[in-house]
Design a binder for these strands. Sequence first.
DNA 1: AAGTGGTCTAGACCACAAA
DNA 2: TTGTGGTCTAGACCACTTG
Lengths: 267, 267
Amino acid sequence: MRPAQSRGGTPIYRQIATELWNRIQTGQLRPGDRMPTENDLSAEFAVNRLTVRQAVAELQQLGAIEVRRGTGTFVAEPPDLVEIVASVSRRTRETDATQTALGEHLHDDADDESAPRSTAPVRRVAERIEFSGAASGASGDAAARHLSTPVEELLHLDTVMVQQDRAWIVNSYWLPRRYAGVVDALAEHDLVVASLRDGLGLDLAYRWRAFSAAAADYDEARLLGIPTGGVLLIRDGVTDDTAGDPVFYVRRRMRGESAKFVLRYGS
Amino acid sequence: MRPAQSRGGTPIYRQIATELWNRIQTGQLRPGDRMPTENDLSAEFAVNRLTVRQAVAELQQLGAIEVRRGTGTFVAEPPDLVEIVASVSRRTRETDATQTALGEHLHDDADDESAPRSTAPVRRVAERIEFSGAASGASGDAAARHLSTPVEELLHLDTVMVQQDRAWIVNSYWLPRRYAGVVDALAEHDLVVASLRDGLGLDLAYRWRAFSAAAADYDEARLLGIPTGGVLLIRDGVTDDTAGDPVFYVRRRMRGESAKFVLRYGS
DNA sequence: AAGTGGTCTAGACCACAAA
DNA sequence: TTGTGGTCTAGACCACTTG
C-alpha cells in the first residue's frame, strides 16, 4: 500500500486512516488485535512517522482503536454498554395516538435505574462546593436561568457515580440556598425521592428532563477518565416541589459509548 | 506567557491550550472574536508552530474554537440549539410515584417534534439501498438482532433531514422485506403513523426508544457536515405492529451540540 | 499579492511498560 | 534493556480566502 502524494487531493494521513478503518470494518483486524506499530506503518506507507500519527489520532478520536503508551495500539473492543431502562406502557389506541402512560422511572433516583445493570454501582461524593461569588462560569449561569434564581443564591454540588472502580457518571446539582438541607441528602445517597419526602417533608416532581451530547471539557474528561473532547451523553433537568417552585437543576454527564437511556414500551 | 519546558510535566501544547481555554472561559476572548494566528501564538509562547497547532486542534475538538482555512481562527459561537420537545403530564401523587402520562409525542414522525423549532425542516431522501448480501457491517447486524430477522431479509433506507440548507438529522431504517410498502411511505414523508395506518392499514406502536451518544464515523461526518469524530446524539428504537411483530428498526443521528430531546412535565 | 491554516519531512529526545 | 507511543523542533511547500 503506497498512497500517492496528496497533491491537492485526499491527504495521505486520511488515506492511511481510511485504509486502516477498512481493515477494521472488514474484519481483517478484529477487536483486541494489535495494530502495526507507528514505525511499521511509517515503513509500510513510506511516510514520516508524524503523518502516521495523524492517521492514528483520527482513528482514536473515532473510537476505533485504543492506544496504550509504551505497549502498543489495539483495535478497540466494543464498549460494554450500560442500559438505563424505563418501562412505559404501550400507547392506547382508542384515542388518537396521544396518550401514553409511563410506569416506574423517570425519577431522579438512579437506584431505580438499575434494572438490567451487571453490577450495582457504588456512589461516592467527589466534591462539595458552595457557590457564593458571581464568577461561576457558563454552567452556573445556565443553572441560575433554569431555576430563575440569581447565581449568588445557589449552592453547587458535584457527585461522581463509580462502577467497577471506574468513574461512570458525573452529576452536578444547583439548588437555592433555602434548600441547603437537600444537599446533605444528595451527598449521602444522591436524590432518592422517597427519602427526601420522609426526611425533609419535601415532595418533588419533574419539571423537565432532556438528553443531549457534547464533547468533554478538561474537567469532565479528568473526572470521567476519558480524553479531552471525548463524547459525553448528557441528561439535565429541573425538579420542583408541589408548589411548582424549582428545587434543583441537575446535569448528568456520562461516557457516550457506554451508557444508553432506554424507554421500553410494555405490551 | 512563556511556559517552561514540559520535562515530564504537563506538555507545552496543553499548557497553551488551557491558557487559551481560560481566556475564553473568563471572557477575555468572546464568541466571534478572532484568535491570534498560529504564527502569533508561536511567537508569543516561543514554541514551534506545530506545537501551537496541537493546542489549537485540542480546543477545536472541544468545540471552543472554529477554524476557517485561509481566514483565521475564531472563538466558537454557542450553537443554536434545536429542542425537540415532548409534553408529559405530571406524576400523579396518589399512587406511589409510579404513574405518569405522556401526551402527544414519542411518535416517530418528526413532524410532531417541531414544537419550538425556528423553521420547519425540509426532509429529503438521500439514499435508498436494498440489502441482500450478508456483508452489511455492524449496524446491519445490530438491526437484524433488534428485529430478530436475518440481515439478508432486511431492506435498508437512509434519509437526511435538512434544516436551513444544512444536514440536521441522518436517519437509517431497516425493515423486513414484507414491509417493502413502508419504504415508499418513508421515502415520501418519513414515518407518519397516521398516513401509514390510513394508506397501508398498518397500525404501529413503539417497542422501545433509546438515547445514546457516539463519535461520528466517516460516513456520518460527511453526511452531517461535521468533522470526523465529532459528537453525535443518537436515538434509536424498534416500532412494531399491533400483533407485536417488529416493523422496523430506526437509528437517528444528529449533531450533539445542536439538538436536545426534552421531556416536559405539565402542571 | 499577502496572509491564513493544512500537510509533510527528517531528526531528536523523552516517558512509559514489559521482558 | 528494549520497544512502544508522546512531545518538540526547524523548515518547507501547499491550498484557500481576502484584498
